[in-house]
């Protein structure tokens, strides 16, 4: 059972279809009360401020805290990943769910002349020396599809690293029953599909 959270932060069509291609039957819910247990996918595109407001309005902030405490597998994607962290400097400063450490900052094109923001396109992801279960079958330095202007620092929660615009940032973060990606696995070809399949099979220990 996999449930996708719809909190008004962008279009969930491609995430839903990606799980359907894997044979899953994802449920999309717009209120926390509709959650019937099972794995949670927390996607999102848009700004951190309106994303957090949308989460709270639907009770998803409390749902995610509870699910994380209970060890329910949670997959954050893009803005979803950023909102799982402590905060972001976007929209004048936004407090996140703080389920994992880190604060998001904006890419500064002054650090790398010619670098374009948003960071859009395929970039390689290093898995580090403690590979996570969600990387099973995915080669180190495989390419994934990114679209974002803010990034999370590569701290101890990082589970994948990417270089762009003079930064080495967290392409993925993990902790407990949470795995979250800055890139879009639903748009990242066979490698992305493998991450989603690994999420569906993930046994959190």
């Amino acid at each position: 059972m996999v449930t996708i959270l719809d909190y008004g932060a962008g279009n969930l069509t491609s995430v839903r279809l990606a799980f359907e291609r894997l044979g899953a039957e994802p449920r999309v819910i717009a209120r926390a009360e509709e959650w019937g247990g099972g794995r949670i996918v927390f996607p999102g595109v848009g700004s951190a401020g309106s994303g957090m407001a949308g989460l709270r309005a639907r009770g998803f902030d409390a749902l995610l805290r509870r699910a994380a405490a209970e060890g329910t597998p949670i997959l954050g994607i893009c803005l979803g990943m950023q909102l799982l962290l402590e905060g972001s400097e976007e929209d004048g400063g936004v407090e996140g769910l703080a389920l994992l450490p880190g604060r998001c900052k904006r890419f500064d094109s002054a650090k790398a002349p010619g670098a374009k923001v948003p960071h859009m396109g395929w970039n390689t992801v290093g898995q580090g020396d403690r590979p996570h279960a969600l990387w099973a079958g995915v080669p180190d330095n495989e390419a994934f599809y990114f679209v974002h202007s803010f990034f999370a620092p590569g701290n101890g929660a990082a589970a994948g690293w990417t270089d762009y615009c003079g930064e080495r940032f967290a392409a993925a973060v993990a902790g407990g029953s949470i795995f979250a990606t800055q890139f879009h696995p639903e748009r990242s070809g066979a490698a992305g599909a493998r991450v989603l399949r690994n999420f569906l099979a993930w046994e959190v220990r």
Partner: peptide, 10 residues
């Protein structure tokens, strides 16, 4: 460019 590696399908 992207490509040139094999993603496992197991």
């Amino acid at each position: 460019v992207r490509g040139g590696t094999e993603v496992g399908h197991a």
